[in-house]
Amino acid sequence: MEVGLLYSRIRPDEKLLLSELRERGHEVHKVDVRKATFGLDAPPEPLGDCDVVLDRCLATSRSKYASRFMAHYDVPVVNSPETAKTCSDKVETSLALAEAGIPTPETTVAFTKESALDAIEAFGYPCVLKPVVGSWGRLMAKLESRSAAEAVLEHKETLGHYEHSVFYVQQFVQKPGRDLRVLTVDGEPIAAMSRTSDHWLTNAATGAETASFDLDPEVEKLAKQASDAVGGGLLGVDLMELENGGYTVHEVNHTVEFKALNAAVDVNVAAKVVDWLEAKVAAEAADDAEADDTDADDADADTAPAEVGQ
């Protein structure tokens, strides 16, 4: 198959994918989105000829628009723009999870410093203030007192970008020093790991220790439901274990990194992702062929002479 890869930085994750795709004889077209332009009529060459395009943009803003353009051009894209839109914004993600009835941390959104402080006080301390867009644990604040909250809110207001005035306040979930990452393809888990740290942030990017995690039916079910809730695709579903049992889903990542996961588990993650891509492309080709047959049958029926009744 011909595969497009939208990127602005080739991370180890993209290298694993590129290597697996090329080893299997697939033709890969890398397109640097910093250099490409996207018009309303036709995709940048050679993406129009691709059987599937992988959106691996490092920047969320680029990912959202680039995947939207691919869908506009009718080029199959992983992930879909709907999934990218939902996952790239924590408010959208929380709403999607809540609407699907999936356990997720209690969250309140406020639009001014004053109302944000009210929301924080209502949660009590500690609670968490997160940017609505962002990753790798950056700009996350665990607020342990009113004075800390006031200071962080003032800093956020001063940062200037309008997104920092969308205050996303969340309950602090007491987790057992770790959280869980499940990598899924259309809801099917490929592999999972725990991420352990003494710090309250347990992102692999912040240095958390990773270890393979054996999926239990509950995690598997929640990962599938979370995937469905955001539109499916290739996703990293993050969950926390609750003190009284059960889990809560706090994040779903749509340009998921899997270098750390690949190192933690006995699964070749890139190979599993490419297996899924191959199956997805084959299924779409079969659907197209079936649609063509139906169109041809309809055309035959239109041109056939009408039967004359007795």
Binding site: R9, T60, S135, W136, R138, N253, T255
Partner: peptide
Amino acid sequence: EAPDLAEDWGE
């Protein structure tokens, strides 16, 4: 020289 980290980078 690689670009500086931007606020919306990530996964």
